[in-house]
């Protein structure tokens, strides 16, 4: 329990530091937001009034605290370009990106774990060697490229879905998930190959350890040794990977959303970067940072659950 509290405290500190760095960086470069919102032709009086309204006349530390408080309350500011609250610009899009990421993650696990266990168990076999080379190829294909190939094969040739025919989750949940499965495959494939390769490696490493020999000496068959002893040990190093994988796939969805015309946060974020619409960029990046840092916290807690050696430290 102390471990969890300690990790949670570290997480909160990390969040504070990251948010401070991001806020300062974006504040320093953003110039005068009032001029940007009203244009250069605006009268000094109107500019001053807007500055006052946006709280820009206050000192940076106070602005940071105010921004942080309103961010936590779900209101991370007003877009320079669209002149409406950032929350309303992003709120409908975050669930889409998140669903795509989670779906990809589930696919990574359902493909990567069995493949890793199989190739670990039968390492050196013909199938293992074939999978190994195939893995190298799959890891080399960027998701936006495989995404295009997937929409061509499954969409245009096999007619399993209509590329570009995105179905909103508000219209039909099955339709929404059915459309997302193909981009999720594109995002998941290289990560699943990585997971399989990593798990194969950790299984073989554990297989060489002394406790594996002990397990054999007690009369276990291969499956008994593998599933009774090796797997749990081999999973520990994989946890860190899965955590990073989750964050990386979030970034991966930004790219693949474009291929499949999915209205997630990608388009808004990139348009805002192009328009230098900093409140939107800051909010989106901050949300992703929160997501990643919390993922890391969950990984740390999972380690504590799985590994008795990290108890109470």
């Amino acid at each position: 329990m102390r471990y969890v509290l300690k990790k949670t405290a570290t997480t909160l500190i990390t969040l504070a530091v990251v948010s401070l760095l991001l806020f300062v960086a974006f504040s320093l470069i953003s110039g005068d937001p009032a001029t940007r919102m009203l244009g250069t032709g605006a009268t000094p009086e109107r500019l001053e009034a807007l500055r006052e309204e946006l709280g820009l006349n206050e000192a940076l530390p106070i602005r940071y605290v105010k921004w942080l408080v309103s961010f936590v309350q779900g209101d991370p500011g007003i877009s320079y370009v669209y002149k409406q609250p950032v929350a309303s610009l992003l709120s409908a899009k975050v669930p889409v990106t998140l669903s795509l990421t989670i779906m990809s993650f589930v696919l990574v696990c359902t493909i990567g774990f069995p493949l890793g266990i199989y190739t670990g168990k039968y390492a050196g076999s013909a199938l293992d060697r074939a999978v190994m080379v195939l893995n190298q190829v799959i890891m080399a294909v960027p998701p936006f490229f495989s995404g295009i190939l997937i929409s061509w094969v499954f969409g245009m040739v096999l007619h399993l879905f209509a590329p570009g025919g995105y179905v909103s989750y508000t219209a039909s949940i099955p339709g929404f998930l059915g459309y997302l499965i193909f981009p999720a495959i594109a995002i998941a494939l290289p990560r699943a190959a990585q997971l399989a390769k990593l798990l194969r490696g950790t299984i073989l490493e554990e297989a060489g350890k002394n406790y594996t020999r002990t397990a054999y000496s007690r009369g276990n068959d291969t499956n008994g040794v593998l599933f009774g002893h090796i797997i749990k040990n081999a999973l520990l190093p994989v946890l860190t990977f899965l955590g990073m994988c989750f964050s990386n796939m979030l970034a991966g969805s930004l790219v693949v959303e474009r291929v499949f015309n999915i209205p997630g946060i990608s388009n808004t974020l990139l348009a805002s970067i192009g328009n230098r619409d900093y409140p939107v960029v800051l909010a989106a990046v901050m949300w992703i940072a929160v997501f990643i840092i919390v993922t890391n916290l969950i990984v740390d807690i999972l380690y504590m659950v799985l590994d008795p050696r990290i108890d109470g430290e």
Binding site: I29, L269, I273, A289
Partner: peptide, 21 residues
């Protein structure tokens, strides 16, 4: 550790949005 946790594509996005593309 903090830097490592962030996907490199995301870091690059923050970087170019601050310094230009």
């Amino acid at each position: 550790d903090g830097l490592f946790a962030f996907p490199n594509v995301l870091l690059a996005l923050v970087f170019v949005s601050i310094f230009g593309s």
